[in-house]
Amino acid sequence: MKSRIKHVLLRARYAAIGAAIGAAIGSVFSRNAASTGGAIGGLIGATVADTRDSASSFLDEAKEKEFSPLSEGDEEQH
């Protein structure tokens, strides 16, 4: 349950940041563009949060595994 709440809050934070950036960029052009930019930025922020979360969980899983070298003779020979 704790990890689910953490995931939801991370996604909300990224969506809010994306919406703020999108609205700021859109406001340069017009009021309607600011609204559209905020909506698109929120979607992008939520997508980035999901991608980052899945990538970090993949990296954590990879760090836990112990990888053996492909061959034992990889050392430099002089």
Rank of each mutant, 00 (worst) to 15 (best):
M1I: 08
M1K: 13
M1F: 08
M1Q: 03
S3Q: 15
R4Q: 09
K6D: 15
K6F: 06
K6S: 12
K6C: 10
K6Q: 07
H7A: 14
H7I: 11
H7V: 12
H7L: 13
V8D: 10
V8T: 05
V8F: 07
L9M: 11
L10Q: 05
R13F: 13
Y14E: 04
A15H: 03
A15P: 03
A15D: 02
A16N: 01
A16G: 06
I17W: 06
I17D: 10
I17H: 05
G18P: 02
A19W: 00
A19Q: 00
A19L: 00
A19M: 02
A19T: 00
A19G: 07
A20P: 01
A20W: 06
I21K: 09
I21G: 04
G22P: 02
A23D: 10
A23E: 06
A23N: 01
A24Y: 04
A24H: 09
I25S: 13
I25N: 05
I25A: 13
G26E: 05
G26D: 05
F29A: 11
F29R: 10
S30I: 04
R31T: 02
R31E: 01
A33M: 03
A33Y: 01
A34W: 03
S35R: 08
S35N: 09
T36S: 08
T36D: 07
T36K: 04
T36L: 08
G37I: 01
G37Q: 01
G37N: 01
G38F: 08
A39D: 02
A39G: 07
A39L: 05
I40W: 02
I40P: 00
I40A: 07
G41F: 00
G41T: 00
G41L: 00
G41P: 00
G41C: 02
G42R: 08
G42I: 00
G42Y: 00
L43W: 01
L43H: 03
L43E: 08
L43N: 04
G45P: 00
G45L: 02
A46I: 02
T47S: 09
T47R: 11
T47Q: 12
V48T: 04
V48I: 13
A49H: 01
A49M: 07
A49Q: 07
D50M: 12
D50A: 07
T51C: 13
T51Q: 13
R52D: 15
D53Q: 10
D53N: 15
S54T: 15
S54D: 15
A55V: 08
A55P: 07
S56C: 09
S56Y: 12
S56I: 09
S57Y: 10
S57F: 15
S57L: 14
S57C: 14
F58L: 14
F58I: 10
L59V: 05
D60H: 08
D60I: 05
D60T: 02
K63I: 05
E64T: 14
E66P: 03
S68L: 15
P69V: 01
P69I: 10
P69G: 09
P69T: 04
L70W: 11
L70S: 06
S71P: 11
S71E: 09
S71M: 12
E72M: 12
E72P: 02
E72F: 14
D74G: 15
D74C: 14
E75W: 06
E76S: 11
H78P: 14
H78E: 14
